[in-house]
Amino acid sequence: MSKLSSFFNKNVQVINIGIPSFAEDLTRQGVANIHVDWRPPAGGNRKIQALLEKINSWQEKVRAAKEGK
């Protein structure tokens, strides 16, 4: 409990990932923040994500074979 109360008594420093409006709200309230423009791979499309994973897995094997692993 004491750790939690000390957390709220400090200046909060925020890294916001994804939704920009969260960072904008904090900025309006004078809270220092860094916004990271992140979106889920393939816009969240599961089918495309699975295809991309196949390509990545294949390429990892190709690179490993080249390096003689």
């Binding site: 089918k47 495309i48 295809l51 390509i55 897995s57 294949w58």
Partner: peptide
């Protein structure tokens, strides 16, 4: 692009 990606996987790495 989605159809092309699917065809690419089918052509090159479908068994991965």
């Amino acid at each position: 692009f989605e159809d092309a990606l699917e065809a690419y996987v089918e052509t090159y790495c479908k068994d991965e």
